[in-house]
Amino acid sequence: MIDALMHSIDVIARIVEFAGVMIMFLGVLFAFIRALMASSKFSHDTYLRIRQHVGKSILLGLEVLIAADIMTTVVTEPTLRSVLVLGLIVLIHTFLSLSLQVELEGRFPWQKKETSASED
């Protein structure tokens, strides 16, 4: 019974890993398709929109991969080594997510958005 449950969770974790990779792949593919469609009027604004789209798909994919890593760690025997590996993976994913968000938005997530005088 327990072995079947662990196998099921492992299969689900693999599916979630695949979904995370596909989110990133399809986001990049979609961004490049948009770039090719806008090639006649490709500008700096087009580049920025594509970059934003790619960055957001990478962020979403990383979040999904973190969930898959947590599921995989729960399925295995919780040894100190597996928990430390999971902690390191989550730390790396968090650093990548934070740096991508700062790169995309120009501010840290905990900073307030700057409002212009016209929005007040």
Score class of each variant (00 low, 15 high):
Thr73Asn: 10
Gln111Arg: 13
Gln52Gly: 08
Ile33Val: 15
Val64Gln: 01
Val85Asp: 10
Val64Arg: 00
Ile23Cys: 07
Val11Lys: 08
Met37Gln: 13
Gly87Ala: 14
Leu86Gly: 05
Gly106Lys: 00
Val11Asp: 09
Ser82Leu: 00
Ala67Asn: 04
Ile58Met: 11
Leu65Ala: 03
His93Ala: 13
Glu17Asp: 14
Ile15Met: 10
Arg34Phe: 03
Val28Asn: 00
Glu77Asp: 11
Gly106Trp: 03
Gly55Ser: 14
Ala38Val: 07
Ser8Ala: 14
Ala19His: 03
Arg49Leu: 05
Ala68Glu: 09
Ser97Pro: 03
Thr79Tyr: 01
Lys113Leu: 11
Glu103Pro: 00
His53Gln: 15
His7Asp: 14
Phe42Arg: 03
Gly87Cys: 13
Phe42Leu: 10
Val90Tyr: 00
Ala4Met: 08
Leu36His: 08
Val28Tyr: 00
Gly61Val: 04
Gln111Leu: 06
Ile33Ser: 04
Leu80Gly: 11
Ile92Leu: 11
Met22Tyr: 02
Ile70Ser: 04
Leu98Ile: 05
Leu84Phe: 02
Lys112Asp: 12
Val90Lys: 01
Gln101Met: 12
Met24Gln: 11
Met6Pro: 02
Leu98Thr: 03
Ile9Asp: 06
Val90Gln: 05
Ser40Ala: 07
Leu62Asn: 04
Arg107Met: 05
Asp69Thr: 05
Gly61Phe: 00
Leu86Gln: 05
Gly27Asn: 01
Ser8Trp: 09
Ala35Phe: 07
His44Trp: 06
Glu17Cys: 03
Thr72Tyr: 03
Phe95His: 06
Ser8Lys: 08
Leu36Tyr: 12
Glu17Tyr: 07
Ile58Ser: 03
Ala35Ile: 12
Thr115Asn: 07
Pro78Asn: 09
Ala4Gln: 14
Thr115Glu: 15
Phe42Trp: 15
Arg49Val: 02
Val16Phe: 02
Ile12Ser: 09
Ala35Tyr: 08
Ala13Gln: 05
Leu5Asn: 07
Ser82Trp: 01
Ile66Asn: 05
Ile66Pro: 00
Val21Trp: 07
Gly55Ala: 07
Lys113Val: 15
Ile89Met: 06
Glu77Cys: 00
Ser39Gly: 01
Glu119Pro: 07
Ser57Arg: 01
Asp45His: 11
Met22Val: 12
Val90Gly: 02
Thr72Asp: 14
Val90Asn: 02
Phe108Cys: 04
Asp3Met: 08
Ser97Val: 02
Thr73Arg: 00
Leu5Gln: 10
Val16Leu: 10
Pro78Trp: 12
Trp110Met: 06
Phe108Thr: 09
Ala35Asn: 09
Ala31Ser: 15
Val102Asn: 06
Gly20Tyr: 02
Asp10Met: 08
Ile50Arg: 00
Ser116Asn: 12
Leu5Lys: 07
Ser39Gln: 14
Ala13Asn: 06
Thr94Ser: 10
Lys112Val: 09
Arg14Leu: 08
Ile50Tyr: 01
Trp110Glu: 08
Glu103Gln: 10
His93Ser: 14
Glu103His: 10
Leu86Pro: 13
Thr73Ala: 15
Lys41His: 13
Glu119Ala: 09
Val11Arg: 04
Ala117Gly: 02
